[in-house]
Amino acid sequence: MIANYGYKDGSGEYYISIDTDKCIECPVGRACLAACPKAMFETLVDDYDDEVVCIKAQFRKSLAYDCVQCKPAGGHTRLPCTDACAPGAIRHSW
């Protein structure tokens, strides 16, 4: 399942997509959890009893602000979370 966490507001569309099918058998030991400087990712057991990664609820309404330090404006050319996710399960919409 592709889970899209985020929102659209007057300034744009801010979603982090997690392909949970790629996430279930993570070959890099959930490296995304440690890679995010704001610790926005967490694991959960989904409705089908698979352990997957999701975005913590408190960050889902403020992604545009929370992710800003990892975007080009913060001096990054690549995102730490997508770099850490070897299976390529994480994508940002902006």
């Binding site: 592709i2 889970a3 985020g6 929102y7 659209k8 507001d9 979603y15 089908y48 889902r60 309404k61």
Partner: peptide, 12 residues
């Protein structure tokens, strides 16, 4: 009936 993809709007 198993979801394969979803999106909501958490903010508004």
């Amino acid at each position: 009936g198993k979801p394969t993809d979803f999106a909501g709007n958490e903010k508004c």
